[in-house]
Design a protein around this nucleic acid. Sequence first.
DNA 1: AGCTCTTCCTGAAAGC
DNA 2: TGCTTTCAGGAAGAGC
Length: 295
Amino acid sequence: MPELPEVETVVRGLRTALPGRSIVAVRLGKTDFIDDPVVLGESLPGRRIAGIERIGKYIHLQLAPDGAGRADSPSHLIVHLGMTGRLVVRAAHEPAPPHTHVFFQLDDGRELRYTDIRRFGRMFLAADAMVADLRGRLGVDALDISAEEFRRRLAGRRARIKALLLDQHVLLGVGNIYADESLWRARLHPARLAAKLSKQEIDRLRHALQRVLGEAIRLRGSSISDFVDSDGQPGGYQRWHRVYGRKGKPCCRCRAMVQRIIVAGRSSHFCPRCQPAPRTRHAASKPRRGKLKRR
DNA sequence: AGCTCTTCCTGAAAGC
DNA sequence: TGCTTTCAGGAAGAGC
Protein backbone atom coordinates (compact mmCIF):
# COMPACT_ATOMS: atom_id res chain seq x y z
CA MET A 1 0.00 0.00 0.00
CA PRO A 2 1.49 3.30 -1.00
CA GLU A 3 2.65 5.44 1.90
CA LEU A 4 5.26 8.19 1.91
CA PRO A 5 8.24 6.07 0.73
CA GLU A 6 6.25 4.42 -2.04
CA VAL A 7 4.78 7.70 -3.26
CA GLU A 8 8.23 9.31 -3.11
CA THR A 9 9.60 6.42 -5.21
CA VAL A 10 6.88 6.88 -7.81
CA VAL A 11 7.40 10.66 -7.90
CA ARG A 12 11.16 10.29 -8.41
CA GLY A 13 10.52 7.86 -11.25
CA LEU A 14 7.96 10.10 -12.91
CA ARG A 15 10.39 13.00 -12.65
CA THR A 16 12.80 11.20 -14.95
CA ALA A 17 10.11 10.56 -17.55
CA LEU A 18 7.47 13.26 -17.58
CA PRO A 19 8.70 16.85 -17.31
CA GLY A 20 8.60 18.52 -20.70
CA ARG A 21 6.23 15.93 -22.15
CA SER A 22 2.80 16.94 -23.34
CA ILE A 23 -0.43 15.03 -22.98
CA VAL A 24 -1.80 14.27 -26.44
CA ALA A 25 -4.98 12.43 -25.53
CA VAL A 26 -6.79 10.94 -22.55
CA ARG A 27 -8.66 7.63 -22.51
CA LEU A 28 -10.82 6.69 -19.56
CA GLY A 29 -12.18 3.42 -18.24
CA LYS A 30 -14.08 3.43 -14.96
CA THR A 31 -14.14 6.93 -13.57
CA ASP A 32 -15.84 6.77 -10.17
CA PHE A 33 -12.58 7.76 -8.46
CA ILE A 34 -12.21 10.91 -10.58
CA ASP A 35 -13.91 14.06 -9.32
CA ASP A 36 -14.93 15.34 -12.75
CA PRO A 37 -13.94 12.89 -15.49
CA VAL A 38 -15.46 14.94 -18.30
CA VAL A 39 -13.45 18.05 -17.47
CA LEU A 40 -10.35 15.93 -16.93
CA GLY A 41 -10.70 14.31 -20.33
CA GLU A 42 -11.36 17.60 -22.10
CA SER A 43 -8.89 19.95 -20.52
CA LEU A 44 -5.72 17.81 -20.36
CA PRO A 45 -4.96 17.21 -24.05
CA GLY A 46 -2.45 19.80 -25.21
CA ARG A 47 -1.12 20.47 -21.72
CA ARG A 48 2.57 20.12 -20.96
CA ILE A 49 3.76 18.54 -17.72
CA ALA A 50 6.09 20.98 -16.02
CA GLY A 51 7.01 19.15 -12.84
CA ILE A 52 6.06 16.52 -10.29
CA GLU A 53 6.10 16.73 -6.52
CA ARG A 54 4.83 14.80 -3.54
CA ILE A 55 2.36 16.30 -1.07
CA GLY A 56 2.21 13.67 1.66
CA LYS A 57 0.71 10.66 -0.08
CA TYR A 58 -0.58 12.79 -2.94
CA ILE A 59 1.18 13.03 -6.29
CA HIS A 60 1.05 16.53 -7.73
CA LEU A 61 1.63 16.96 -11.47
CA GLN A 62 2.17 20.60 -12.32
CA LEU A 63 0.88 21.59 -15.74
CA ALA A 64 2.34 24.40 -17.80
CA PRO A 65 0.01 27.28 -18.65
CA ASP A 66 -2.52 26.33 -21.29
CA GLY A 67 -1.25 27.26 -24.76
CA ALA A 68 -4.77 27.33 -26.15
CA GLY A 69 -5.49 30.46 -24.21
CA ARG A 70 -7.83 28.89 -21.69
CA ALA A 71 -6.13 30.79 -18.93
CA ASP A 72 -8.61 29.63 -16.33
CA SER A 73 -7.99 25.89 -16.80
CA PRO A 74 -6.71 24.26 -13.64
CA SER A 75 -3.00 23.64 -13.75
CA HIS A 76 -2.61 20.89 -11.20
CA LEU A 77 -3.39 17.20 -11.56
CA ILE A 78 -3.60 15.53 -8.17
CA VAL A 79 -3.45 11.75 -7.78
CA HIS A 80 -3.82 9.69 -4.61
CA LEU A 81 -2.95 6.02 -5.06
CA GLY A 82 -5.25 4.86 -2.26
CA MET A 83 -4.58 1.20 -1.54
CA THR A 84 -3.82 -0.34 -4.89
CA GLY A 85 -3.19 2.56 -7.25
CA ARG A 86 -0.28 2.43 -9.69
CA LEU A 87 1.09 5.16 -11.96
CA VAL A 88 3.32 3.63 -14.60
CA VAL A 89 4.90 4.99 -17.79
CA ARG A 90 4.82 2.49 -20.64
CA ALA A 91 5.20 2.41 -24.41
CA ALA A 92 1.72 2.96 -25.83
CA HIS A 93 1.76 -0.33 -27.74
CA GLU A 94 2.38 -2.43 -24.63
CA PRO A 95 -0.69 -4.20 -23.30
CA ALA A 96 -2.16 -2.65 -20.16
CA PRO A 97 -2.90 -4.78 -17.09
CA PRO A 98 -6.50 -5.28 -15.95
CA HIS A 99 -8.08 -2.43 -13.94
CA THR A 100 -6.19 0.22 -15.87
CA HIS A 101 -8.67 3.06 -15.96
CA VAL A 102 -6.78 6.14 -17.15
CA PHE A 103 -4.43 6.41 -20.11
CA PHE A 104 -2.58 9.68 -20.66
CA GLN A 105 -1.12 9.45 -24.14
CA LEU A 106 2.16 11.40 -24.28
CA ASP A 107 3.88 13.12 -27.20
CA ASP A 108 6.81 10.68 -27.18
CA GLY A 109 4.86 7.53 -27.97
CA ARG A 110 4.51 6.51 -24.38
CA GLU A 111 1.60 6.51 -21.98
CA LEU A 112 1.20 7.42 -18.34
CA ARG A 113 -1.25 4.83 -17.04
CA TYR A 114 -3.28 4.67 -13.86
CA THR A 115 -4.18 1.19 -12.67
CA ASP A 116 -6.20 0.67 -9.50
CA ILE A 117 -7.77 -2.67 -8.61
CA ARG A 118 -9.88 -1.43 -5.70
CA ARG A 119 -10.32 2.14 -6.88
CA PHE A 120 -9.69 3.60 -3.43
CA GLY A 121 -7.50 6.17 -5.13
CA ARG A 122 -8.52 9.68 -6.13
CA MET A 123 -7.77 11.83 -9.13
CA PHE A 124 -8.75 15.43 -9.71
CA LEU A 125 -7.78 18.64 -11.42
CA ALA A 126 -7.16 21.59 -9.16
CA ALA A 127 -6.64 25.31 -9.55
CA ASP A 128 -3.93 27.11 -7.57
CA ALA A 129 -6.30 27.95 -4.74
CA MET A 130 -7.39 24.33 -4.35
CA VAL A 131 -3.81 23.14 -4.01
CA ALA A 132 -3.16 25.80 -1.40
CA ASP A 133 -6.31 24.71 0.39
CA LEU A 134 -5.21 21.06 0.30
CA ARG A 135 -1.84 21.94 1.77
CA GLY A 136 -3.49 24.03 4.44
CA ARG A 137 -5.73 21.19 5.59
CA LEU A 138 -2.89 18.69 5.77
CA GLY A 139 -0.20 18.34 8.40
CA VAL A 140 3.55 18.65 8.12
CA ASP A 141 5.46 16.10 6.05
CA ALA A 142 6.84 13.33 8.27
CA LEU A 143 10.27 13.56 6.64
CA ASP A 144 10.61 17.30 7.22
CA ILE A 145 9.00 17.82 10.59
CA SER A 146 11.27 19.34 13.22
CA ALA A 147 11.57 18.01 16.77
CA GLU A 148 9.81 21.11 18.13
CA GLU A 149 6.94 20.88 15.65
CA PHE A 150 6.51 17.15 16.28
CA ARG A 151 6.31 17.72 20.04
CA ARG A 152 3.93 20.62 19.57
CA ARG A 153 1.54 18.58 17.42
CA LEU A 154 1.39 15.71 19.90
CA ALA A 155 1.28 17.86 23.02
CA GLY A 156 -1.88 17.45 25.07
CA ARG A 157 -3.50 15.10 22.60
CA ARG A 158 -5.45 12.40 24.37
CA ALA A 159 -5.61 10.17 21.31
CA ARG A 160 -3.51 7.05 21.01
CA ILE A 161 -0.15 7.64 19.39
CA LYS A 162 -0.93 5.22 16.58
CA ALA A 163 -4.06 7.19 15.67
CA LEU A 164 -2.11 10.44 15.54
CA LEU A 165 0.68 8.99 13.41
CA LEU A 166 -1.96 7.96 10.86
CA ASP A 167 -3.86 11.27 11.00
CA GLN A 168 -2.92 13.20 7.86
CA HIS A 169 -4.05 16.45 9.51
CA VAL A 170 -1.28 15.98 12.07
CA LEU A 171 1.51 14.34 10.14
CA LEU A 172 1.75 13.73 6.42
CA GLY A 173 2.64 10.51 4.70
CA VAL A 174 2.55 7.85 7.42
CA GLY A 175 0.34 4.80 6.93
CA ASN A 176 -0.11 1.55 8.78
CA ILE A 177 3.17 -0.12 7.86
CA TYR A 178 5.50 2.73 8.79
CA ALA A 179 3.50 3.64 11.89
CA ASP A 180 3.98 0.12 13.25
CA GLU A 181 7.63 -0.08 12.21
CA SER A 182 8.46 3.29 13.78
CA LEU A 183 6.70 2.48 17.05
CA TRP A 184 8.62 -0.80 17.29
CA ARG A 185 11.89 0.97 16.66
CA ALA A 186 11.07 3.62 19.28
CA ARG A 187 9.86 0.89 21.70
CA LEU A 188 6.48 2.52 22.14
CA HIS A 189 3.20 0.62 22.39
CA PRO A 190 0.71 1.78 19.71
CA ALA A 191 -2.03 2.34 22.30
CA ARG A 192 -0.01 4.79 24.41
CA LEU A 193 -1.76 8.15 24.77
CA ALA A 194 0.21 10.90 23.09
CA ALA A 195 -0.25 13.28 26.03
CA LYS A 196 1.43 10.76 28.34
CA LEU A 197 4.59 10.35 26.28
CA SER A 198 7.71 11.93 27.71
CA LYS A 199 9.74 14.42 25.72
CA GLN A 200 12.41 11.75 25.31
CA GLU A 201 9.87 9.24 23.99
CA ILE A 202 8.48 11.74 21.48
CA ASP A 203 11.95 12.62 20.26
CA ARG A 204 12.81 8.92 20.01
CA LEU A 205 9.66 8.34 17.95
CA ARG A 206 10.44 11.13 15.52
CA HIS A 207 13.97 9.84 15.10
CA ALA A 208 12.68 6.29 14.49
CA LEU A 209 10.04 7.52 12.07
CA GLN A 210 12.45 9.50 9.93
CA ARG A 211 15.01 6.74 9.95
CA VAL A 212 12.47 4.09 8.91
CA LEU A 213 11.07 6.33 6.16
CA GLY A 214 14.56 7.16 4.93
CA GLU A 215 15.60 3.52 4.73
CA ALA A 216 12.36 2.60 3.00
CA ILE A 217 12.91 5.30 0.37
CA ARG A 218 16.44 4.03 -0.17
CA LEU A 219 15.00 0.57 -0.88
CA ARG A 220 12.30 2.05 -3.11
CA GLY A 221 9.38 1.34 -0.79
CA SER A 222 7.57 -1.74 0.50
CA SER A 223 5.71 -4.06 -1.86
CA ILE A 224 3.15 -5.91 0.24
CA SER A 225 0.51 -6.64 -2.32
CA ASP A 226 0.37 -4.27 -5.23
CA PHE A 227 2.97 -1.55 -5.03
CA VAL A 228 5.25 -0.98 -8.01
CA ASP A 229 7.24 2.09 -9.04
CA SER A 230 6.73 4.09 -12.21
CA ASP A 231 8.71 1.46 -14.14
CA GLY A 232 6.55 -1.35 -12.79
CA GLN A 233 9.25 -2.64 -10.40
CA PRO A 234 8.49 -3.70 -6.80
CA GLY A 235 10.25 -2.16 -3.81
CA GLY A 236 12.52 -3.95 -1.37
CA TYR A 237 11.79 -2.64 2.10
CA GLN A 238 9.21 -5.35 2.93
CA ARG A 239 12.15 -7.68 3.61
CA TRP A 240 13.18 -5.39 6.44
CA HIS A 241 9.85 -5.11 8.21
CA ARG A 242 10.36 -5.88 11.90
CA VAL A 243 6.75 -6.22 13.06
CA TYR A 244 4.36 -5.44 10.23
CA GLY A 245 2.89 -8.70 8.93
CA ARG A 246 4.98 -10.72 11.42
CA LYS A 247 2.25 -11.76 13.86
CA GLY A 248 3.28 -14.90 15.75
CA LYS A 249 6.91 -14.61 14.70
CA PRO A 250 9.72 -13.79 17.12
CA CYS A 251 10.63 -10.16 17.73
CA CYS A 252 13.92 -9.33 16.01
CA ARG A 253 15.21 -7.73 19.22
CA CYS A 254 14.01 -9.97 22.06
CA ARG A 255 12.42 -13.06 20.50
CA ALA A 256 9.06 -12.49 22.19
CA MET A 257 6.09 -13.26 19.95
CA VAL A 258 4.92 -10.35 17.78
CA GLN A 259 1.26 -9.59 18.44
CA ARG A 260 -1.48 -8.01 16.38
CA ILE A 261 -4.23 -5.97 17.97
CA ILE A 262 -6.68 -3.35 16.74
CA VAL A 263 -5.76 0.22 17.73
CA ALA A 264 -7.60 3.20 16.32
CA GLY A 265 -9.51 0.80 14.11
CA ARG A 266 -6.32 -0.40 12.42
CA SER A 267 -4.46 -3.66 12.77
CA SER A 268 -1.35 -2.91 14.78
CA HIS A 269 1.69 -5.11 15.11
CA PHE A 270 4.01 -4.82 18.08
CA CYS A 271 6.31 -6.69 20.45
CA PRO A 272 4.68 -7.07 23.87
CA ARG A 273 8.07 -7.11 25.59
CA CYS A 274 9.88 -4.29 23.77
CA GLN A 275 6.76 -2.13 23.61
CA PRO A 276 5.12 -2.35 27.04
CA ALA A 277 1.39 -1.67 27.14
CA PRO A 278 0.16 1.50 28.84
CA ARG A 279 -1.42 1.04 32.24
CA THR A 280 -5.16 0.97 31.70
CA ARG A 281 -7.27 2.98 34.09
CA HIS A 282 -9.21 -0.22 34.67
CA ALA A 283 -6.32 -2.20 36.03
CA ALA A 284 -4.90 0.70 37.99
CA SER A 285 -8.06 1.93 39.69
CA LYS A 286 -9.06 0.67 43.09
CA PRO A 287 -12.62 -0.38 43.81
CA ARG A 288 -14.69 2.62 44.77
CA ARG A 289 -15.40 2.86 48.45
CA GLY A 290 -17.61 5.13 50.51
CA LYS A 291 -20.60 7.03 49.32
CA LEU A 292 -21.10 7.73 45.64
CA LYS A 293 -21.82 11.29 44.80
CA ARG A 294 -25.45 11.93 44.02
CA ARG A 295 -26.27 13.79 40.86
C1' DA B 1 -12.07 15.56 21.55
C1' DG B 2 -11.74 11.11 20.14
C1' DC B 3 -13.60 6.64 19.57
C1' DT B 4 -16.23 3.13 16.76
C1' DC B 5 -18.69 2.00 12.84
C1' DT B 6 -19.74 2.36 7.97
C1' DT B 7 -18.79 3.09 3.09
C1' DC B 8 -16.14 2.62 -1.08
C1' DC B 9 -13.71 -2.02 -3.86
C1' DT B 10 -11.43 -6.41 -5.28
C1' DG B 11 -8.78 -10.48 -4.69
C1' DA B 12 -6.47 -13.50 -1.59
C1' DA B 13 -6.94 -16.49 2.07
C1' DA B 14 -9.45 -18.84 5.45
C1' DG B 15 -13.41 -21.64 6.69
C1' DC B 16 -16.71 -25.20 5.91
C1' DT C 1 -12.62 -29.87 -4.35
C1' DG C 2 -15.49 -25.88 -4.46
C1' DC C 3 -18.21 -22.82 -2.54
C1' DT C 4 -18.99 -18.82 0.86
C1' DT C 5 -17.19 -15.66 4.17
C1' DT C 6 -13.78 -12.74 5.95
C1' DC C 7 -10.25 -9.58 5.74
C1' DA C 8 -7.06 -5.89 4.23
C1' DG C 9 -7.05 -0.71 4.42
C1' DG C 10 -6.83 5.39 3.19
C1' DA C 11 -9.97 8.69 4.05
C1' DA C 12 -14.25 10.81 5.11
C1' DG C 13 -18.55 11.11 7.44
C1' DA C 14 -22.05 9.79 11.00
C1' DG C 15 -23.20 9.12 15.59
C1' DC C 16 -22.03 8.77 20.39
